[in-house]
Design a protein around this nucleic acid. Sequence first.
DNA 1: ATGACGATTCAAAATCGA
Length: 262
Amino acid sequence: MVKITTWNINSIRLRMPIVERYLKEHAPDVLCLQEIKCQEQQFPYEAFRELGYEHIAVHGQKGYHGVATVSRVPMQEFSRHDWQDNGEARHVGVEFPSLDGLVLENVYIPAGGDIPDREKNLKFGQKLDFLERMTRWAEKIDRPTLLVGDFNIAPLECDVYDHKALLKVVSHTPLEVETLDLLQGAHDWVDLGRKHIPAPERNYSWWSYRTYWQGKDRGRRLDHMWASPDLAAQSVAHSIAEDTRDWEKPSDHVPLMTEFDL
DNA sequence: ATGACGATTCAAAATCGA
């Protein structure tokens, strides 16, 4: 059995205490982090090594973005895609020689700014371009691959607290959903969140800091784990650690964990 | 406990997130 977690941590330096608590409570074999918000030399390598996660791949950047994958199972970093072509650190890919060469792609897809119109908002265009470049990449995948991370898109009506109200809000617009659907079709990715927690069941992974205190459950499913079809058939359990949203100094995202019979 | 986001950075106010 192999347990793999993805979590947008919103600053690894600030949240190492809750990461440690999560690792001790859930004991995943591999943890993929997004928004580490630090440079590689600032990453807490030693803390992870002491927790048993000795294999570490970090693609960092000063202040913003940044992703890292840490593992108890031996792995090798083998790719860092720049799907925006602007130097931002939003991807790291690793492979596991002892798991039949399983490939794990950890990605932080751009948020896309406020206005859902590429003519008026450069960032929205960059988000769509990022997805299109990923689609070209996905068409060529030839080994079992797990693609995880913060996709910043809630594709299904039931992936947001109010579908109609969010149709014009970046993260749930029809254009973003169509573009994400093309990426999904390019490799026949299986959405593990919905394999294990079928629509329309509530399955949120993110709540805004601004409204969470109101207690109205205004969540969105922005984080995803997608698997190649053959790999997806080996996933046996999947869960969301929603309680972490109430831990001390929480991230605005919660961890997703999938267990594979490998 | 009578307000109400939280992170980053040339360290105060600006910018970003989604």
